[in-house]
């Protein structure tokens, strides 16, 4: 069953149409990538998904139920569908890590003593125990990102939306964040939605994929389906994964009979090895 879905969702800022009849659905316990160039409408879509923005027309369903925009319901939904914002500085408002992580939990009605325990527990899981008593302004960008994720996970959401989780991180930081997500997913069966420009990561971590272009969905399907039709990526200010690009060139220019849909290093390695052993 779909945990979130939308039907003909439209949203506009002043005159500008940001989302244009978007049909979107997220199966339970899945990882979905939302791709698209800058200004394609990804962030707007996310804010519509957890009720922070009210669509101009169209509907949003959570667990098959139509979303109602009463303030009580919106608050409930935003705890079930957590968003980790792109810039952790936008999200972390408190100067102590502990206070900031507890914020969502206390807002959900958790008692302070319980919230304290919950903070310790989540910090242990994310590996930020040593940061709890540090001032936020002394943290690195990657550390702030983890704190921001902890602040959302403490609300025990069913869905976590990560807006550009890789932006501004170094390669090691990117790997850490994705390892973290994978681990959390294994433990809690949370559904993950993420937007990213790091296309190389998509085939490694994601099952489903959407491409937005000027507020419209131009592709929906599994990642494997997407990789069979790389033209669509280029049309939407994106590119194919580097490995895949290499395989394409090997086939086109050097006439090696490799698998052009191999998008990860391991798949490419397998394909090249097969080719060599056949010869």
């Amino acid at each position: 069953m779909d945990i979130i879905s939308t039907k003909d969702l439209c949203y506009s800022y002043d005159e500008k149409m940001a989302l244009d009849h978007v049909n979107f659905n997220i199966p339970q316990d899945s990882v979905t990538a939302v791709l698209g160039g800058n200004g394609a409408g990804k962030s707007t879509l996310f804010l519509n998904l957890n009720g922070l923005l009210k669509p101009d027309s169209g509907k949003v369903y959570y667990n098959g139920e139509e979303m109602k925009y009463t303030s009580k319901n919106v608050r409930l939904l935003s705890s079930k569908i957590g968003i980790v914002f792109q810039d952790p500085n936008d999200q972390i408002f408190s100067d102590t890590v502990r206070n900031d992580i507890a914020f969502g939990a206390i807002n959900m009605g958790m008692e302070k003593a319980k919230a304290k325990q919950a903070v310790d527990e989540i910090a242990r899981r994310i590996g930020i125990c040593d940061l709890l008593d540090k001032p936020v302004h002394a943290l690195s960008f990657g550390q702030k990102k983890r704190v921001a994720i902890a602040g959302v996970l403490i609300m025990k959401p069913d869905v976590i939306i990560l807006d550009e989780p890789t932006a501004g991180l170094d390669p090691a930081g990117i790997k850490e964040i994705f390892d973290l997500i994978t681990e959390i997913k294994k433990e809690t069966h949370i559904s993950v939605i993420l937007s990213t420009h790091e296309i190389d990561i998509v085939p490694l971590f994601c099952e489903y994929c959407y491409i937005l272009d000027q507020g419209r969905v131009v592709f929906r399907g599994t990642v494997n389906e997407l990789l069979k039709d790389p033209a669509i990526l280029r049309k939407s200010s994106l590119r194919t994964p580097r490995v895949m690009h290499l395989m394409e060139i090997l086939k086109k220019e050097d006439h090696f009979d490799v698998d052009v849909t191999a998008s990860t290093i391991s798949k490419a390695r397998k394909s090249i090895k097969e080719l060599l052993s056949n010869e």
Partner: peptide, 10 residues
């Protein structure tokens, strides 16, 4: 953006 982030955490 800060306000959205606050709101999304209740």
């Amino acid at each position: 953006r800060v306000y959205h982030a606050l709101e999304s955490r209740g």
